[in-house]
């Protein structure tokens, strides 16, 4: 970086202070507290705490319930990421191809981006409701007794469907803008070489889209892990009981309901490590990508 710059000493510091202060108080302090209290056992009534070393962590690894939540989170993340990326890619390819109504399709397919997860969750509650739900009726017509909030797999299905619904638009926007940035001559050359549209897509278009797809992969994993909180909370109607839940939801439940501060903090730290790994992975991909372009 050899840029022309201003030579001031105090001004840049003053410009940085507000942001740094907020980050220090509301980011580093809580993050440090999470790491710190993950090594302590808090008295539930607030009378001091006791250093317990790795106990909170070993409690996690040996807890069959935590492992069950972890397994569900993995399956949920894979399903939501895979389905919403696949659907968005299909729609983006088609929206990029058609000439008539391209703008209308774009608007119709992207606007759900702005719907908040819990609002989507509430609509999901109505659609999958035992008495009045339209999707429940559909299942009933097929001879299946669908029960949201009672059957583990039925609730999981609703969570996946609502999450995919709300996550597809953002993927669609990125895929479409990725497709539109592919130089036209490249596609024309490919058309001459290879008349089969399907093969042309996998051999020419898709590799050119790969960077966008990788970027979206990380975004979607993060989304499935964290941003689905509102959907899960509304669909289980604040009553987790035997319902499926994700790791983040469990941090919340254990920390605020169960009052298990140490255990909840240990779970937070596990998630932090998970996100760090994802981010390192993303940075490495970005580096490689800069190399290509």
């Amino acid at each position: 970086m050899k840029r022309a710059r201003f030579d001031h000493r105090l001004l840049p510091v003053m410009l940085l202070v507000p942001q740094l202060t907020i980050i220090a108080i509301f980011f580093y302090w809580p993050a440090w507290n999470a790491v710190h209290s993950s090594f302590y056992l808090q008295d539930p009534f607030g009378f001091g705490s006791q250093f317990v070393g790795m106990d909170n962590y070993t409690r996690l690894w040996t807890s069959s319930e935590y492992m069950r939540v972890a397994r569900f989170t993995l399956v949920f993340t894979l399903l939501v990421t895979g389905l919403s990326l696949g659907l968005a890619l299909l729609l983006a390819v088609k929206a990029d191809k058609v000439i008539r109504g391209a703008r209308t399709y774009r608007t119709l397919l992207m606007w759900v981006y702005a719907v908040a997860p819990p609002v989507a969750g509430l609509i999901g509650v109505a659609l999958f409701d035992q008495n009045i739900g339209a999707i429940t009726d559909l299942f009933a017509a097929l001879g299946y007794d669908y029960r949201l909030g009672v059957s583990y797999s039925d609730t999981a299905l609703a969570m996946v469907v609502v999450s995919v619904w709300i996550q597809t638009p953002v993927n669609f926007i990125f895929f479409l803008s990725g497709l539109q940035s592919i130089p036209k001559p490249v596609l024309e050359a490919a058309r001459i070489d290879n008349p089969s549209g399907f093969r042309r897509f996998w051999e020419v278009t898709f590799p050119l889209l790969a960077p966008t797809a990788f970027f979206l992969l990380i975004i979607n994993i993060t989304y499935s892990l964290f941003d689905t909180f509102g959907i899960i909370d509304t669909l289980v109607k604040n009553n987790p009981a035997s319902n499926p839940m994700t790791l983040v939801y469990k941090v919340f439940i254990d920390g605020f309901r169960g009052n298990d501060i140490g255990g909840s903090a240990a779970q937070s730290v596990v998630l932090m490590v998970l996100v760090l790994i994802l981010t390192v992975f993303q940075f490495r991909l970005l580096e490689r990508r800069i190399h290509y372009t």
Binding site: A34, T222, F226, V248, F256, L276
Partner: peptide
């Protein structure tokens, strides 16, 4: 701060 969303450090 880009690394850790609020949800991760919600309790502290």
């Amino acid at each position: 701060t880009l690394l850790l969303p609020l949800e991760v450090r919600i309790v502290p």
